[in-house]
Design a protein around this nucleic acid. Structure first.
Length: 586
RNA sequence: CGGGGAGUGGCUCAGUCUGGUAGAGCGCAGCGUUCGGGACGCUGAGGCCGGAGGUUCGAAUCCUCUUUCCCCGACCA
């Protein structure tokens, strides 16, 4: 590649729209341009980085025995109705009608399409196991696209689907993907962590997310400092049983708490710790089929937070949302802050379901809102003074919780989700009647798994993890080119000839090289080289004429060596090889 | 969808409150000087001020509607 003929429109200034580093740098480095909200054009260098990821993904998927195919982006609504997801998936599914008035949608994922394909072709256990994947542009009409490629509406995803005869075989397929994902993210040069995850709207029983560790991550992970346990906070189960409190039960008592609404204010006023208080929160819940809405009251200890995903799963709800103060008053007739589980009734005879966190069940002589402005109740006890419909693990795990596996200390870190693997079981195969005959001639539903990787997001995540104030620092495996040669003597025949020779020699060795042959001042060339994040920079300039050397600089650590031109190719080949397996595996 | 903000040359923004000749820096084109960390001088091109309607002698500026984008929350690869 000659820079003078390559379309890499770098920007000196940062476009106003960019908030996070990866977005900023990808715009500045001329990798992407926005077309409309959450939809980007990939320019040559951005695409080159994406292709690098795709290549690694392909190689590892193929190695794991998966086969590539390519499914349509436009899908018929009827297919989605078979699984009920046409209604359930929500407005993230972009729906439209074609000229014949047929309802259609743009594929945000392909469980329905693949299951439809496989049910038509697979009849016998002899055709199994099967793992099919594609790398394709997906469209999800995100409520709020942001951060450039980190959360676009259109994005490139690898999605794989496995089909097996039984749970054991499906477990093997899952494990193969789990291992393949480790290889993929390792080869991409990323620091990542596999964590237990909530399976969300895709459905299914069990899943892991692969998280690239970065401060800008939108997910929070809980990791154990002593063992391998790691989970998304949405999922992290609180396994330790709450300590049974053996205090004698005291007589309930109404106390005046004028103007004390917040947990901290009530506790201070009554001189109790927040561990003695029960928070009563009202949620607006939308039923699983999206048809009805109803309120639910959730009880957690005063110092805890409700984990809404756990609540959503418990209620099998499509959506749960904390009610606003005004809504709470409209529903219960009690101002927020004074709500309690006793005598909790909706206005107009509305029933309010009450659910409690495990910890609440173990509490004794607690403080709760009295259900009346400016009053709380002391020495309230669950079972004696009030009943709840369900007791379950509903709160978010906290740093002071012990590790669910080993009891060790926990920490929390931020991560970017770049991969997610699910055991689907028979959710889709049963809904769509995708069956096969087993060895005994019995008809059985296929056991499925699905495995996603956010290809375009990986590039963004890699940049989040690898950059400095001057620009991107690509891992060798993802860099659009491994080497950039700066010709600082365009008008000097000797310098130019040396730069051209190195360019030709490196290319002959299979190295991807960008030759900066632009008629620009040296400063601009240095700045652009840093911005683009190309791992190795070769500067051919006046020092060649004076001292007979060219300079090689490592982008990552700034390490600089001066070599005679004859030594350059060998040196770089050794460095590139040392930096990763990308060259040999090409 | 709720809450906040913004649309003015390719980019970053000023001008809007208080209506009166559309501006700056960067970028771009030409010439000259420069040439190892985004140089300097001179000359120049480029804007129906997001769109529609209104008020006014006169609107980037005031009013109404509309549209797009960005930020904060719920979703997800």
């Amino acid at each position: 590649m000659r820079y003078s003929q390559t379309f890499v429109p770098t920007l000196k200034e940062t476009p106003a729209e960019a908030e996070v580093v990866s977005h900023r740098l990808m715009l500045r480095a001329g990798f992407i341009r926005k077309l409309t909200a959450g939809v980007y054009t990939y320019l040559p260098f951005g695409l080159a980085a994406i292709r690098k990821v795709e290549k690694i993904v392909r190689e590892e998927m193929n190695r794991a025995g998966a086969q590539e195919l390519l499914m349509p982006m436009v899908q018929p609504a009827d297919l989605w109705r078979e699984t009920g997801r046409y209604e359930k998936y929500g407005s993230e599914l972009l729906r439209f009608k074609d000229r014949h008035d047929r309802e259609s949608c743009l594929g945000p994922t392909h469980e329905e399409v693949i299951t439809d394909l496989v049910r038509g072709e697979v009849r016998s256990y002899r055709q199994l196991p099967l793992n099919l994947y594609q790398i394709q542009s997906k469209f999800r009409d995100e409520i709020r696209p942001r951060f450039g490629l980190m959360r676009g509406r259109e994005f490139i995803m690898k999605d794989a689907y496995s089909f097996d005869v039984d749970d054991e075989q499906a477990g093997i397929a899952y494990q193969k993907m789990y291992d393949a994902y480790h290889r993929i993210f390792n080869r991409c040069g990323l620091q990542f962590r596999a964590v237990e995850a909530d399976s969300g709207s895709i459905g299914g029983s069990f899943s892991h997310e692969f998280m690239v560790l970065a401060k800008t991550g939108e997910d929070t992970l809980v990791v154990c400092k002593s063992c391998d346990y790691a989970a998304n906070v949405e999922k992290a189960a609180i396994k330790a049983r709450p300590v049974e409190n053996q205090e004698p039960l005291l007589e309930a008592e109404k106390v005046e708490t004028p103007g004390k609404r917040k947990v901290s204010a009530v506790c201070e006023f009554l001189s109790i710790s927040s561990e003695k208080l029960i928070k009563t929160l009202v949620y607006k819940v939308t039923s699983g089929d999206g048809q009805q809405g109803y309120p639910v009251a959730v009880l957690v200890r005063g110092d805890r937070e409700v984990q809404e995903v756990k609540l959503k799963n418990l209620l099998q709800a499509a959506e749960v949302e904390l009610a606003e103060d005004k809504e709470v008053f409209d529903i219960t007739g009690v101002p927020t802050g004074y709500l309690g589980p006793i005598g909790l009734n909706g206005l107009n005879g509305l029933k309010i379901k009450v659910v409690a966190d495990l910890e609440v069940a173990a509490m004794r002589n607690c403080v709760v809102g009295a259900g009346e402005k400016n009053y709380h109740l002391k020495n309230v006890n669950m079972g004696r003074d009030f009943e709840v419909a369900v007791v379950a693990d509903l709160r978010q795990i906290a740093d002071d919780d012990p590790c669910p596996l080993c009891g060790g200390e926990l920490g929390q870190i931020e991560g970017i989700e770049v991969g997610h693997i699910f055991k689907l079981g028979t959710v889709y195969s049963e809904a769509m009647r995708a069956v096969f005959q087993d060895q005994d001639g019995q008809e059985r539903p296929l056991i499925m798994g699905c495995y996603g990787i956010g290809v375009s997001r990986i590039v963004a995540a890699a940049i989040e993890q690898n950059h400095d104030e001057n620009g991107i620092i690509f891992p060798v495996a993802l860099a659009p080119a491994q080497v950039i040669i700066l010709n600082l003597g365009l008008k000097d025949a000797g310098i130019s000839a040396a730069a051209e020779l190195l360019y030709a020699q490196l290319q002959a060795q299979g190295v991807e090289v960008l030759l900066d042959d632009r008629d620009e001042r040296p400063g601009s060339k240095f700045k652009d080289a840093d911005l683009l994040g190309i791992p190795f920079r070769v500067t051919v300039g006046a020092r060649l004429s004076k001292e007979g050397v060219v300079e090689i600089r490592h982008r990552r650590d700034g390490l600089t060596v001066e070599l005679s031109p004859e030594q350059v190719v060998d040196y770089l080949l050794a460095q590139i090889t040392a930096a990763g397996p990308s060259l040999q595996e090409r």
